[in-house]
Design a protein around this nucleic acid. Structure first.
Lengths: 204, 204
DNA sequence: GTCTATATAGTGATAGAC
DNA sequence: GTCTATCACTATATAGAC
């Protein structure tokens, strides 16, 4: 659930300004690398004013992560057992890739956290996340059993989708360095590549 | 090239001890998150003694990254234009997956760096790395043109291999949280899954 | 609600004894 | 080569005026 946030309009707006600035800084520098000075500067507020809205640096970070997880897992939640199996999976891949393109900072915030052992979202990992994947892996398994898609390890399929799509946000500088300045936008080719890949993988 | 390191046997051993400890800490905490105190504790040395062997925190980090990059790209360098195309690519995937399993700290050190914009290895990214990928993408392109493997975007194929294999090291806690305690070792299934995936993708 | 000033703790690096 | 002690600086958080 989204974290509860203040009531009045000014408080609302300032909280959002702070969170927007914090997303920028945390996603680029990690939790320890980020400083309240940087966030305050970017938000156009004084440092003590930041701590009027949030009790601590940690609280800002937690608020971001909590809100993010909800958005982040929505495409997987939307995987519809009643839909066309291949189309459902391709839509999932496509939505995750679009999220990498449109929300790269969120992706990197999440990656930073998991990379360092997910100390602040361990409960969500082994709880809600594991349960959701368990459920959707069951859906995929049923599709395989029914012969609607080719045999595949459901959970490793999900890992593959995460890995392939998030790579374009998390390793953005590497992708751009390798493609060179002639290829300013990796996403059209990536979308084509991934679609072809999953069709070949899953078509019966 | 590997960074030059001291001459005598004691210096040799202490340098290695420091680097081993630093790899542990940096890979888990990132550059800013790591402290010299943590590294010194783990290495069993005093903090000033650390700085007798390396001039600064930055120098320790750079030494690790430089040594790492050499090892990290070796499997791609070994991709043999004269070998059997599908077997060459499957071997590359397999070696990268083995590296995730056997060198997860190195993978996370690298991921931390790239995730935060690769500030210390930008030159390598746009230089050596880009050149190597350019060369090997040419090899893959030739295989496609000759009809030895199915049509594929060479550079995005390489990104896919990186993403899929490194995911198991970099997002290890998430993988284990999702698989649950019943499945303590993800790698056998991952290897099977990836092999099947790339065969379906590339077989003509 | 927002600011200046400051308390408090840590953090990379150095001095200098041994 | 290694240690204790410490400097200089940074960073989170708080106090208290306005």
């Amino acid at each position: 659930m989204p974290s509860p946030r203040p009531r009045t309009r000014i408080q609302q707006r300032n909280s959002e300004t702070i969170l927007a600035a914090a997303l920028d800084i945390f996603s680029q520098q990690g939790f320890r690398g980020a400083t309240l000075d940087q966030i305050a500067d970017l938000a156009g507020l004084s440092k003590p004013n930041l701590l009027y809205y949030f009790p601590s640096k940690e609280a800002i970070h937690t608020a971001l992560l909590t809100d993010l997880l909800d958005v982040w897992l929505q495409p997987l939640r939307d995987l519809d057992p009643a839909g066309d199996p291949l189309a459902e999976i391709l839509t999932y891949v496509r939505r995750k890739l679009d999220m990498s393109r449109d929300m790269p900072r969120e992706s990197r915030l999440f990656a930073n956290e998991v990379l360092q052992g997910a100390p602040r979202i361990e409960a969500t990992m082994t709880g809600d996340l594991a349960a959701l994947v368990e459920e959707k892996a069951g859906v995929i398994h049923a599709w395989v059993t029914a012969g609607h898609i080719a045999p595949v390890h459901p959970k490793h399929l999900i890992f593959s989708i995460w890995a392939l799509t998030q790579h374009y946000a998390d390793f953005d500088v590497q992708v751009r360095a390798v493609l060179g300045p002639q290829e300013p936008d990796p996403y059209p080719d990536a979308a084509q590549h991934l679609e072809t890949m999953f069709i070949k993988m899953l078509k019966v």
